[in-house]
């Protein structure tokens, strides 16, 4: 692939992940210029998505930009790491307009700042004043329990196993009863019309 040789000149390595998926890892300082050269020189005109992963233990966010060419036959992921504390990224909305909403979501869910971004307002949440909810140090369970207590349990619940057993037994008994009744009826009829066989013979 000639992209690999082009990247080699920039002393970067293109790693193939799957047959249509490649990745490049780059440090944060060179990120913006690399994204620009992907767009202007290599022809990657589409920004698919911007993703964020929280590596809490190591203290950074892993950011992934997914790019495609006009042919749409493969995806290149450009990965970089940024500090978790006071995380901030250059905004890409002037180059790829769709980045505006992706960045707004990332700002809301992870608290990443985008200086110069025009609409860093609420995206899916409303009036959220807690820690951004997808950061891993946000204790979801504690928050949920403090906001929404559980409904009190009903204690008239029946044991499903036993109920099914009872039901099956009742069904069996009903079937047996019906059978016995049918037999008794047949016997009675045979008693009442003993001449049946004789008639048939005639």
């Amino acid at each position: 692939m000639d992209l690999a040789s082009k990247l080699e000149k920039l002393s970067l390595e293109l790693v193939q992940k799957q047959d249509y998926l490649y990745s490049v890892t780059i440090d944060f300082e060179r990120l913006e210029s690399l994204l620009l050269s992907f767009l202007n020189e290599f022809g990657y005109i589409t920004l698919d998505s911007i993703n964020c992963r929280d590596d809490l233990e190591d203290g950074f966010f892993t950011i992934t930009y997914c790019l495609q060419t006009e042919e749409r036959d493969h995806v290149v992921m450009i990965q970089t790491k940024i500090q978790r504390e006071n995380a901030s990224l250059p905004t890409m909305h002037t180059i790829w307009p769709q980045a505006e909403i992706m960045e707004r979501e990332m700002h809301e869910m992870f608290g990443v700042d985008f200086p110069g971004h025009p609409t860093l307002i609420d995206f899916a949440l409303e009036y959220w004043d807690n820690m951004p909810p997808l950061r891993r140090d946000f204790d979801t369970l504690e928050y949920v329990n403090s906001m929404n207590p559980f409904r009190e349990q009903r204690n008239d619940a029946l044991d499903a196993k036993e109920e099914m057993k009872k039901k099956r037994e009742a069904k069996k008994a009903a079937k047996l009863k019906a059978q016995q009744e049918a037999e008794a009826k047949a016997a009675l009829e045979a008693q009442n019309n003993p001449s049946d066989e004789v008639k048939n013979e005639e």
Binding site: T140, L141, V144, N148, R151
Partner: peptide, 16 residues
């Protein structure tokens, strides 16, 4: 809407 269902531990939905 009764008890949160499978979204019981979501940070953004109500339970009851």
């Amino acid at each position: 809407p009764i008890n949160g269902g499978m979204y019981w531990d979501s940070y953004n939905t109500i339970k009851k």
